[in-house]
Structure formats: C-alpha cells, structure tokens
Design a protein around this nucleic acid. Structure first.
Lengths: 142, 142
DNA sequence: TCAATAGTTTAGAATTATTATAATGTAGAT
DNA sequence: ATCTACATTATAATAATTCTAAACTATTGA
C-alpha cells in the first residue's frame, strides 16, 4: 500500500516540500482509521517510535505550524497549560474530561446546532466552538 | 467610600488573608462598573500604575491563581499563546475578535441555550463554553 | 500587648515551552 | 550533475511560568 504517494501529493498541493521528515509526520498523523488529538510532546514521542533517526524538535514545531496554517491541523486550547492539535479539521465540538485530561470529539447529534442571534457589527463569524468540560460525579473539581 | 472593607471581608470569606497586595488587586479587579478581561501582563501593568510600591510578578501569578481556584476569576483560553482572565465568573460565552484580539462577552440573548443531547457516561457536565471567532469581512484570516 | 506561628511576599533562580539562528543537508529545476 | 531555494538540525535565545528560600506580616492566644 504505497500511501506515501498520497502524502507527497498532499504536501505538494499546499506548497510544502515532501521531505523525509514531513512524510513520516504525515504517516503518523493521517495514516490511521480515525482522526485523533495530540500535543506536540505526544507527536515527538510517536514519531521517534516510528523512525530510527531522531527528528529535531524544531522541525516538529515548524511543520505542525505549517500544517495548521494550511488547515491540515486545528488547535484546541484547553487552558494556558494544555493545548491539543486535532487531525479532524472539520467543524465540530469537544468534550474535555477533566479527570483523564482526554479530549473527545462530539458527534453531530450530541449537541444541537448553535444558533448565534447577534454578531459583532461588521464582522463575519469564522468559527463557533463549544467545549464541554466533564468530570466524575463524585470528584473534587480542579 | 471605604470599599476596601468589602474586599477584606470578601477575602476572609474564601479563606484568603487580606494583605496589602491582595486588597490592591481586588480594587483593580472588582472596583469598577463592568467586569472585564485581562492577561497577566495587563494586570501587572494596571497594578503598577495604581500602586507606588512595586508588586512582584510571582505575587500576581500566585494571587490570580488563588482567585481562580476560589472562583473569583475565570480563565478563557484562546490559543496556546493567548489566555485571558475574566472577572465575570458567571456562565457566559464569548466572541473573540481576531483582528483586534479583543475578547467580548456574549449577552444571554446573543446565543440560544446550548442543548447537550449526549454526555460521556458516568460524567457530569461542569461547564459549557462557546467561543465565536469573528474577523473583518474583507480580511485575510490568521 | 506581644510573642509565636502560619501563611505571604519578594527577588531571583530554575524550569518549561517555544522560537530564532546559522551551519549543513536535500529536493527539484535547469 | 549542478545549482538554488528551501529544510533540517543542534544549539542558543527568549518568554512565560513556577520554585525557592529568606524576609515579612496578619492572626492567634497567652
């Protein structure tokens, strides 16, 4: 299954040079059944495991940000200390489990469509994101 | 108008010692008509202007976090680089103006009540927050 | 009133996350 | 094959936040 060809094409399409590192990164990010959430640290870990050579932290940062700017990744900010990237770039909402620190996609049926009645004059809405924080019933909240 | 007495009481109620610094901080944060949004930097700036003595950065961090934990402040995280605190601790939503980087409270009438149809099993919902990102119509998006 | 003490502030050091730098390496065009 | 522009790398620099340990202060209660 020469999936790499897809990634090379994909990278070319958005004007990124298909280098070894970027292709490996695409594999880790997009060569899977389901979309997923990760932190930069998670990603460095994952790539290291899949690649014999070491990848530079700077490269991971640069490439993640390049992907984000091109719309291949979306950032989900939980608080000033916890920020995830999401390979699911379509408009959708999230649950955040405060016990496990897990970010979970909402299905479309989980949350009724958000109806914005008034907007800031002269502005257009770029995105509407809902974050639902959940925790164990019998737990002291953060 | 000895408003400070209120702050001393208020601090006592939640188990914080009413020190000079905390009282000054309360004045800056709560002695105003409307609630507002600020970053740590904003706050240090504001306190410095209002106080002859210098306040330590560590104290500002510590006290903001103490207030947050006690529910006197709420954190609103925009992305990994931008995080605000809100003196309005009631449940409400926000617009974020990507042109001006301004955070704006939604009125209750601006957004219809959010209806969560399904939740994570065994968990209870702690909060539901909506962030509506807006920008000038004729502007390149971030 | 005046210590004792428990919590607080402070400056500066340490840590962490992220970005910049400059040398080396590599993809793609000619 | 060579050239050029862009990438990668290790490391340094920066920025944001937290830690530390000494000095300070509000409260308690003798």
């Amino acid at each position: 299954m020469p999936k790499n060809c897809n990634f090379i094409e994909k990278l070319r399409e958005v004007g990124l040079r298909p280098t070894k590192q970027r292709i490996k990164m695409c594999e880790v990010l997009y060569n899977r059944e389901k979309t997923f959430h990760f932190t930069i640290n998670d990603l460095v870990q994952m790539i290291s495991e899949k690649m014999s050579e070491k990848i530079s932290l700077a490269t991971v940062y640069n490439t993640v940000h390049a992907f984000e700017k091109k719309g291949y990744l979306k950032e989900i900010s939980i608080d000033s200390h916890k920020s995830y990237f999401d390979t699911n770039t379509s408009a959708h909402h999230h649950f955040f489990d405060e016990d496990t620190h897990e970010l979970i996609d909402c299905d479309e049926s989980d949350i009724d469509k958000i109806n914005i009645r008034k907007n800031i004059t002269g502005k257009k809405i770029n995105s509407v994101e809902v974050l639902v924080r959940v925790a164990s019933d019998n737990q002291i909240q953060k």
